[in-house]
């Protein structure tokens, strides 16, 4: 199940990313956001393995981001803020997960959407705490006790995100080969069989769900510290849709897919969303349809096909 080695593509990706970020300074921001979203999408991938799709994972991104925004006045350092963001998302994920892990397919997807939209509207309406649609500004935190000026801060955040992405991607790969990770496709194929093996499918899904919430919370925390501004829009359905979109775009085949998908997505978005602000969702929807109907293994699948064919050549 471990499949092909990912060491080379990972190293290449990291080198390419750092090289591009060094040559075009504005890319540091884009890539940090892409990595943060990639972490959230890694969580979506765990659920996709079990054949489940959540239309509401922006909820956990927003929980992570708002945790940073709320905690920032009292907690000053990234190394404390990130664990807080993850912790908050984990707790919310566990509470919601205890409920949604009982459901599959339609209910699973839609209940997640419902929870995220409730959270969105609460963020919007509870103005006294959240400042509504104005959102909350986040003062740049210190990193490991050191205060950085803007450019160095961006570099350190990018490096930190990159390290987290590589580390957690590696961990996710190990997880997917473990009994728990291997039980996920079993939920997709034949859930009752797990029950007849004495294993609670619900609990297996719950573990992945909480992990996915934690990953999304981490991504949200990074987003808050990179954009330095959080708004309810983080929890809006379009954002959840983006995460699902990236997961499908990247392809469910390997843990690199989410990051590859996220990087492509964010790069295209910089141009496309500016050129067609009112047609952005439409473009995403059309591409999503295209991938589902014609290239169901996503970008990573295309990469695999290309490299496999090349390797097969004499």
């Amino acid at each position: 199940m471990m499949g092909r080695s990912l060491t080379l593509p990972t190293l290449l990706g990291v080198a390419l990313l750092i090289g591009l970020a060094a040559s075009a300074p504005w890319l540091k921001f884009v890539f940090t956001i892409a990595l943060a979203k990639g972490l959230a999408v890694l969580g979506i991938l765990l659920l996709l393995r079990a054949g489940q799709v959540s239309f509401g994972h922006a909820l956990y991104v927003a929980v992570g981001a708002y945790t940073v925004a709320f905690a920032r006045p009292t907690v000053g350092d990234v190394l404390l803020l990130l664990p807080l963001a993850v912790g908050a998302a984990t707790i919310v994920g566990l509470l919601v997960g205890l409920f949604v892990a009982r459901y599959r397919d339609i209910f699973f997807g839609m209940l997640n959407l419902a929870f995220s939209m409730v959270f969105y509207s609460l963020l919007e309406k509870l103005y006294a705490y959240t400042r509504g649609t104005d959102g909350i500004r986040v003062i740049p935190p210190t990193i490991a006790g050191l205060a950085f000026e803007r450019v160095s801060y961006e570099w350190v955040m990018l490096g930190l995100s990159l390290a987290l992405a590589v580390g957690l991607g590696f961990l996710a790969r190990i997880f997917l080969a473990s009994p728990l990770g291997q039980a996920l496709p079993a939920i997709k194929a034949r859930e009752t069989r797990l029950e007849f093996a004495g294993i609670s499918a619900k609990r297996v899904l719950l573990v992945s769900y909480v992990a996915s919430a934690a990953l999304a919370g981490l991504g949200g925390g990074i987003i808050a510290m990179t954009t330095l501004h959080v708004t309810p829009l983080l929890a809006y359905w379009t954002h959840s849709g983006e995460l699902v979109f990236i997961a499908i775009l990247g392809g469910g085949g390997a843990v690199l897919g989410p990051f590859l998908g996220a990087a492509v997505f964010e790069l295209v978005r910089v141009y496309a969303a500016a050129a067609f602000p009112d047609a952005w969702q439409m473009i995403l929807g059309a591409v999503l349809l295209g991938i589902i109907l014609f290239a169901s293994r996503g970008l990573w699948g295309i990469y695999e096909d290309l490299t496999t064919r090349r390797a097969a050549r004499p």
Partner: peptide, 8 residues
């Protein structure tokens, strides 16, 4: 996906 398209 259809929903995303129709919203725009």
């Amino acid at each position: 996906a259809l929903f995303m398209i129709l919203e725009d």
